[in-house]
Every structure is written in structure tokens, then in C-alpha cells.
Design a protein around this nucleic acid. Sequence first.
DNA 1: GTAAGTACCAACAGAAGTGTAAGTATGGAA
DNA 2: TTCCATACTTACACTTCTGTTGGTACTTAC
Lengths: 127, 127
Amino acid sequence: MEKICAETLKEKLRRGDLLAEDCPSRNVLKHLTSRWGVLVLIVLDDGTHRFGELRKKIGGVSERMLAETLQGLETDGMVLRTDHHEVPPHVDYRLTPLGREAAKRVSSLADWIEINLPRIAKNWPAN
Amino acid sequence: MEKICAETLKEKLRRGDLLAEDCPSRNVLKHLTSRWGVLVLIVLDDGTHRFGELRKKIGGVSERMLAETLQGLETDGMVLRTDHHEVPPHVDYRLTPLGREAAKRVSSLADWIEINLPRIAKNWPAN
DNA sequence: GTAAGTACCAACAGAAGTGTAAGTATGGAA
DNA sequence: TTCCATACTTACACTTCTGTTGGTACTTAC
């Protein structure tokens, strides 16, 4: 009985259900929509970048956060890290095919926000 | 001189630039991609819901967080709150046209995650 | 010998996010 | 009279997030 329940639950989550509290898909969502994750995907969608380049393009990220964000995205198979084993260090980051698919969706939202910011801002109190 | 700079900056941000540290678009992104904001948009895209209905559908939200999230989305003009002034209270929430546009993008990402969860999970260490 | 250059990591502290529990309001039902 | 229903709000505590600072590694240039 217990086994059947477990299997059923597992089966249910096989595809992912963001409305379910314990579904691992929520972690993916967390990485992809994190404060810096979104911006990293957008920039990387534009091509391979080094760590320092990403930092320059994304206004306000600290080294610590950029590194952490990149690791999260790497864990989900969105970003590929390539270490050229040079001195001084030379590492670059690019999107995997999976990452490119995700970036497409994320960018779509981001573009929409940028374009529609005036419409959105109209609803704000202090203008 | 000072004035010119200010105008230029304002002009620059008129359209929204998520890569700029101080652009207000980052707040919108924050609301739309917040932990619960995403899920609220997805559920509301399916139709008008009362507070309690949202809470039941979205696994794990506390009342506090749901209320806060809804207020954030209302501030950005994504969600319309209707109070029927009944006792016991009867309030419902629906997406505005703006909200529906945003929800479309957010849902697109969410759907992609749910469908591709197996592909993503393959990259995780403990399976 | 020492500074520069690059990509980090660790430790600490303050800020922000989040959950829990309790309380508010009001009319109607039991 | 007491309890219920619903949509919140507030206070408190705890966890997570985030920035800052300082440090590592190693080679080349000065």
C-alpha cells in the first residue's frame, strides 16, 4: 500500500507540477527566476561571456552572487562552464541547448516588461 | 548640466532596462517572478478566484504571503481586486488585460519547466 | 620584489523573505 | 449567547538572501 502511494506520487511528479508544494520543479523555477538568474540567462543568450564580462553587463551583481547564480544554473544544466586552465584564470560561460530554451522564455518576459514599463508604471501611486 | 543628465537618465529608463541597476523595471520583475507571484499569475490566468480558492490551489502559501503577493501584483496593475462588501467577506481576484499578457509569458516558462523537468533533473547529482 | 590580472571562496553581518499564531470585523445560524 | 465563515492584519521569530571584505593561486611585466 505504502509502495503504491509512493509510486503514484512519484508518477505524478514525473512531469512536474509547480502547484504542488514538494515538486522539485519549484527549485528549477527558483533558479531561473532568481534575482540574478534571469539577467544571467538574458546576457548569456547573447553569446558566450567570461565571468568579468557578465559582471560588467549586469548592473549591481556582486562577485559572490554572480558565482552562486552561475552555479545554480550549471546544476540545472542551463549553463556550461569552461575553464581554459590559463594564468591568469580564463573561464567562460555559455548556455546549453536546454539553457537556450529556458532563456527564450525568460527573455520573452523580460522584453515584455521593458517595453510595457510605461503602461505598468501608470498604476503606481507616486509619479 | 545637472538637469540635462537627469533628463537623459530618465529618458534612458523610459523604456526600461533590466540590466541597469536602478531601473524600476527590476521591481516589476521582482513581483512577477517572486516565489508566489508566478504561481498566482498561473492560477488566475485560469479565471477569477477568491482568496481562499487561491490558497487551496497553490500548495504551501501562507495567508500572509498570498495577501502580500496579491498586493504587489495589484500595485503593478496585473491583478484586479473586487470586494463584494458582504459578510462574511467575499473578495475576488482576476487578471487585468496587462496581467493576462504577463501571465502568458510566465505560464510559458512554467509549462516549459514542468514538461522538461525530466531533462533538467538528469543533470542533478543525486538521482 | 612587487604589482597586476582573473576567477573565484570563506566569514561575517545586516537586510529581506517567510511561517506561525493570534486578532479584527460582522451578520447569520444554532 | 456562542460559534462560524472569510479575508485579511499585526507581531514575533526564524531562515534565507545579499553585500562587503579579505584572501588564494600563479604567471607576466615592471
